[in-house]
Nucleic acid binder design. Structure first.
Lengths: 135, 135
DNA sequence: CTGTACCTTATAGTAAGCTTTAGGGTTTAT
DNA sequence: ATAAACCCTAAAGCTTACTATAAGGTACAG
């Protein structure tokens, strides 16, 4: 009683059965107890855990990093805020680098795109193609 | 005489043999002529073409999109500046969306990270873990 | 008791962009 | 002549995060 089968957990977390089994295979979800017939039986704890995973994903953590966060969480008393904050700050740096890189791309592409007439004439002198050709 | 073997083209473009053969398999490089023994023989044109590919990659175009750009370039007179500019603007929109998404991630993560003491005490009350746990 | 919805496993496929491996031939320098 | 450096192909492997397929067993409603 009170147990959730995989489909119910999937519905409650807006995921699906395959994804949950995949998370289990990657260690993000622990092997749950099973019914006599082998069905996975989850509790409310797993609902929270899946939400944790999804939230961390939205923060840009990879599944591997989420696995690390989860391990930290399991032994909260053994780990320090410093350890957790380090992970988060490292991720922040990564996100920042990606943003900077995308901004560089954007500026470069914007520049050559702005210079392009975009008209109906043939692309022989198209500034975009020429910019990509330039030495 | 004057022909480049694949290793030389790789050196000149700061790529490697495997990548060049891979580009060929994806249609980004045309099948070059071969020596009697079957070695690929390239000309200076291929150096420029590889540079075009690498430059477009740095602009954030995927190999598939680069293939499109190259086809446009082949028949420059048949294509219009408008076609090229459309591709570029579509890519600009995509880049913009990615930047916005990363900024959202960054703000959210920054907020919970700033709230974390980062100290040596146990992570039981760590604001980062708790934020990821929160409903 | 039968249909439908649900669950199980193992295996393969997807996307992108390569890299690696295995098992061979060729070119060049000494 | 032989070793080192170079080239060839086909096929598999890598990474991330799933998704799909096949071939089955289970739960429950009517």
């Amino acid at each position: 009683m009170g147990y959730l089968r995989i489909g119910e957990l999937a519905r409650l977390t807006d995921t699906n059965n395959e994804t949950l089994r995949f998370y289990e295979s990657r260690g993000l979800l622990e092997e749950p107890r099973r019914s006599d017939s082998g069905y996975r039986l989850y509790t409310q704890a797993e609902v929270l855990r899946v939400h944790f995973i999804l939230r961390a994903k939205r923060m840009g953590f990879s599944l591997k990093e989420i696995d690390e966060l989860l391990s930290l969480r399991v032994d909260k008393e053994l780990n320090t805020c410093g350890t957790v904050k380090e992970l988060a700050e490292h991720k922040l740096l990564e996100i920042d680098m990606k943003i900077k890189e995308l901004n560089r791309m954007k500026d470069a592409l914007q520049q050559i795109t702005d210079a392009c007439c975009g008209g109906e004439e043939s692309a022989i002198h198209c500034t975009i193609l020429n910019a990509l050709d330039a030495e």
